[in-house]
Simulated scan of single mutants.
Amino acid sequence: MDQNVTETALALDAFPPLPGADGDERKDGRRTGIEIEFGDLDDEPAAAILRDCLGGDLSHPKAGQWRLEDSRIGGLDLYLDTRLRPEATSEGAELAVDIARRVVPLEIVTEPLARSRLPLVERMMDALSDAGASGSRDGLLYGFGLHLNVELADPENGTDMPRTALAFALLEPWLRARDPLDVSRRVLPFTRIFPGAFVDALAEMGGDADLGHLLDAVDAHISDRNHGLDLLPAYAHLAPDRFARRQAEAGAVKARPTYHYRMPETRFGTPGWSLGYEWRRWILAERVAADPDCLSRLCALRGDFENVPLRPPHQDWQDRMTEALGPLAQLAPEGGPGAPQ
């Protein structure tokens, strides 16, 4: 067998398939956009790395912003991650960007990608790391994120959304205990854990809740996007009229049929860490959502510990969660990247 074919197959093994709307795994059907924040590498050499890894045509439309077209993963953007980024290229704008480079991260944003393209993103990330790009653990206040924008299994009606939101909400304290976030990520407001009242409301509804019940719970308990799983873009897509009544968020959320999974941090240089590692932790939530028996076990376990604080998670609760998950727990190894699976 051709060595390149073998290497591609092995790389793809790190990215288990996403379930479809009917719960069956589909080889390449659902797409995922990737957002990667990093520091300590200037935008021009970073842009050159993207072109060298992925091919395509590179352009520099504005100060602090680059665009790669027709690459092996389609189009992607690289820019300084700041709302103060200039809207034009000029001598003054370039000076402002030069100052901003010292204090704000760069961000790469891809278009929605088929699963078969994800190993190429991982190789690009390895090249950035080799060139000196830093992650969240390289600076006290870096807090750089890696976001996955995973397409809903049912982008028209969101029938998968209540179960997936429930699965993630039940798993979230356990996931954070298995592999704690760096302090630089925890002190920033972007990835707060779901409120306990929200999780309790979802657990009480169980796996048979419909989208309306989920949105009722979101309206009652979720006030902004700053959680490990941001449900508001999908809410705005599926129920635009209802979402428009949420005045505080209506102007700040881009409606799209995706789970905006924003809990992961960028960890360039950490042994064992990769895009595939974070992907598998998300896949755990999807597989729990697709398994009614497992979802029921986790709901019941939440009830067993109703009066026990789970922040930090109680050790007995962690152990019982691991037991309830069975082999699925291997998708999120205890101890984080590099731990035995």
Rank of each mutant, 00 (worst) to 15 (best):
G92R: 12
L80Y: 05
G269A: 11
A48W: 09
E286T: 04
D216A: 07
A48H: 14
L166I: 07
R256A: 05
L170W: 03
L202A: 10
A332D: 01
L231T: 07
D13S: 04
A203N: 08
R30E: 05
R256P: 14
D81R: 07
A244N: 14
P292R: 03
L18W: 00
A14R: 15
L128V: 07
D24Y: 02
W282G: 00
R123L: 04
Q315R: 14
D70W: 04
G303E: 14
P333Q: 10
H221M: 05
G33Y: 07
L54G: 01
R72P: 03
A165N: 05
N307M: 11
P292Q: 10
A131V: 08
D216T: 10
A300H: 12
L215S: 09
R192I: 05
V199T: 15
E286Q: 13
L41R: 08
R281N: 13
P17N: 01
G206A: 09
R30V: 00
V103W: 14
R280V: 00
A63I: 06
R245V: 06
R245I: 00
T6S: 11
R185M: 11
C299W: 01
A234F: 06
R163F: 06
D293R: 11
S71V: 02
G158N: 06
P240W: 10
V5T: 12
V104A: 13
P337D: 07
R117T: 04
R267E: 11
L76W: 00
D216K: 01
I34Y: 02
H237I: 02
I193W: 00
M1K: 08
G132W: 05
D24V: 02
V109C: 14
G55D: 11
P327V: 04
D241V: 09
F243K: 01
Q315A: 15
S59I: 02
A201T: 05
I108K: 05
L113P: 09
Q3D: 12
G29M: 03
A289S: 13
L298Y: 07
V253R: 02
E25T: 06
S116F: 03
L301K: 06
R176K: 15
L76S: 05
D22P: 09
L175I: 14
L214T: 00
E69C: 08
R117N: 09
P271N: 11
F268T: 02
R186W: 10
T258L: 02
K254M: 13
D241F: 06
D293I: 09
L146M: 15
T191L: 10
L41P: 12
A252S: 15
D57T: 12
A114V: 04
R163M: 04
L10W: 09
T270W: 12
D40F: 09
A239H: 08
Q315H: 11
N4Q: 14
R302W: 14
Q318A: 14
R302S: 02
R280P: 10
C53P: 03
Y277C: 05
Y277V: 02
G338A: 11
L10H: 05
R281V: 07
V109K: 02
R67N: 14
L202D: 13
R256S: 11
T6Q: 12
R242K: 13
Q3M: 09
L58S: 06
D52G: 08
D316E: 15
